[in-house]
Simulated assay, not measured.
Amino acid sequence: MEHLLNPRVKDIEISGIRKFYNMVAHIEDVISLTIGQPDFPTPDHIKIAAKRAIDENFTVYTHNAGFIELREAASRYFSKKYRLSYNAGDEIIVTAGASEAIDIIFRTILTADAEVILPGPVYPGYEPIIKLCGAKPVFADTTGSGFKLTADILKRYITEKTRCIVLPYPSNPTGVTLSAEELKAIAELIKDKDIFVLADEIYSELVYDQKHTSIASYIREQTIVINGLSKSHSMTGWRIGFILAPAAICKHILKVHQYNVTCAASVSQKAALAALTTGFDDAIGMKEEYIKRREYVFQRLTEMNVQVVKPDGAFYFFVKLPDGFNSSLQFCLELVEKAKVAVVPGDAFSPLGEGYFRISYAYSMDTLKTAMDRIEAFLV
């Protein structure tokens, strides 16, 4: 019966990140720096709020967009954090994580043969959904610009079929972000064009050397913002994301969301309310620790004489393959076999990622020290 399946589904593959993780999971004594998951526990006050929700039987459907107190808290949170103004009633949707947000946004805005510009190398969660919509992913090469999608690069890829530009900053896999000036230049380029911007800002609380700016500050009517609590509050398993968009767009995304999941999990929504209120600054302590880890790993990699761009945010390094290696998969397999360290091959992040590998430093300092010692010994 497989021949009857949707050919678009048959043509996509499991994420290269997970594929490699599963490939090496059986090898003993391996230090894995593969998964982008905070190693901090969810803060206690958030867990207490979730337990209280269960005890109070808050275990039923909520409004499709999320219960109103949570959306009001989200409106205040993003206003105070990033000066973004969105109405809780009709411009905010609570989703089952940022992944569901990506899915329902693309299904709302894309038509067959539309083009979506992605800054390559890029997180692999966009391309398959674009293809499932019958649209075409277009990878803009950022390898020569420090992994920044600048206005000058972007204008080379815009065509009459361009429907959306994805701006995932800070970036997974590179950790690079865009400054306010760089975002303003992009906004000026596409202002008043029939092009959406999907601003994936899931790592917005983990920006280290500057303040996070959203392109929605410049072209609000064209921008759909995605955010969430997985990275900022170490809540990956709670599956809470947010969509912020003008009401005229949001009302249509909400229809797709309704038929997709009805609503985000009610208990998780109560936990999210605690995260956005009493946990307003929960990310600060985590961010300080990530900065220490970033500085340590950057120093070690620099001493190994490998080429790497110092990340501005998130918790990744995207490292150029050392001399003598022509394949990112070959390098990563040899590193696992000989040094017992797992990292992610760069080609998991589009063809433009070939020639690199990704290190996640969302791990303890002890783990990172041992991993760096092993990598250094491998490269000698």
Rank of each mutant, 00 (worst) to 15 (best):
Thr174Ser: 09
Glu295Met: 11
Tyr169Met: 10
Thr262Lys: 15
Ala180Cys: 00
Val197Asn: 02
Ser268Cys: 14
Asp282Ser: 07
Ala245Gln: 03
Ile202Arg: 00
Ile249Gly: 12
Ala248Thr: 04
Phe196Ile: 01
Gly279Tyr: 03
Ile195Ser: 02
Glu295His: 11
Arg220Ile: 12
Thr213Asp: 03
Ser234Asn: 13
His233Arg: 04
His233Tyr: 06
Pro246Leu: 07
Glu289Gly: 09
Ile202Ala: 04
Asp282Tyr: 01
Tyr290Asn: 04
Glu160Asp: 06
Pro170Thr: 05
Leu178Cys: 09
Asp282Cys: 00
Ala271Asp: 06
Ile186Asn: 05
Met286Ser: 10
Glu188Thr: 05
Lys231His: 13
Thr223Ser: 11
Ile253Glu: 05
Gln269Leu: 12
Leu167Ile: 10
Tyr259His: 15
Val256Tyr: 04
Phe242Trp: 11
Lys255Met: 14
Ala283Ser: 04
Thr223Asp: 09
His233Leu: 04
Leu178Trp: 07
Leu183Asn: 00
Lys287His: 02
Leu229Gln: 06
Leu229Val: 13
Ile291Phe: 05
Trp238Thr: 14
Pro168Phe: 05
Gly237Val: 11
Leu229Pro: 10
Trp238Tyr: 14
Val261Phe: 14
Glu295Trp: 09
Ser230Arg: 04
Lys292Asn: 07
Val256His: 02
Tyr259Phe: 15
Asn172Thr: 15
Ile253Met: 04
Arg239Thr: 15
Glu288Ile: 06
Gly228Ser: 08
Phe298His: 00
Met235Leu: 03
Leu206Glu: 04
Ala283Glu: 03
Glu181Val: 14
Lys251Val: 15
Ala180Gln: 10
Ile186His: 06
Tyr218Phe: 00
Val166Thr: 01
Gly237Phe: 04
Ala272His: 01
Asp209Gln: 15
Ser204Ala: 07
Leu276Trp: 06
Thr213Tyr: 08
Gly285Phe: 05
Cys263Met: 12
Val297Arg: 06
Ala275Tyr: 07
Glu188Leu: 03
Lys191Leu: 13
Met235Phe: 03
Lys255Asp: 15
Tyr169Glu: 00
Gly279Val: 02
Asp282Leu: 07
Val225Asp: 00
Thr278Cys: 14
Gly237Leu: 11
Ser234Phe: 08
Lys191Gly: 11
Glu182Asp: 01
Gly175Lys: 00
Asp281Ile: 12
Glu182Pro: 03
Leu178Ala: 10
Cys250Trp: 09
Ala283Phe: 03
Gly241Asn: 02
Pro168Ile: 01
Ile165Asp: 08
Thr236Asp: 13
Ser232Val: 00
Gln222Gly: 04
Val197Ile: 12
Ile202Tyr: 02
Lys184Val: 07
Lys193Ile: 09
Ile186Arg: 01
Leu183Ala: 02
Val267Lys: 08
Pro173Gln: 05
Ala180Leu: 05
Ile243Asp: 10
Ala248Tyr: 11
Val225Ser: 01
Pro168Trp: 05
Ile219Glu: 01
Thr262Leu: 15
Tyr203Asn: 07
Ile215Phe: 02
Lys193Trp: 12
Glu201Gly: 11
Gly175Met: 01
Ile190Phe: 07
Glu182Lys: 06
Leu198Cys: 09
Pro246Ile: 09
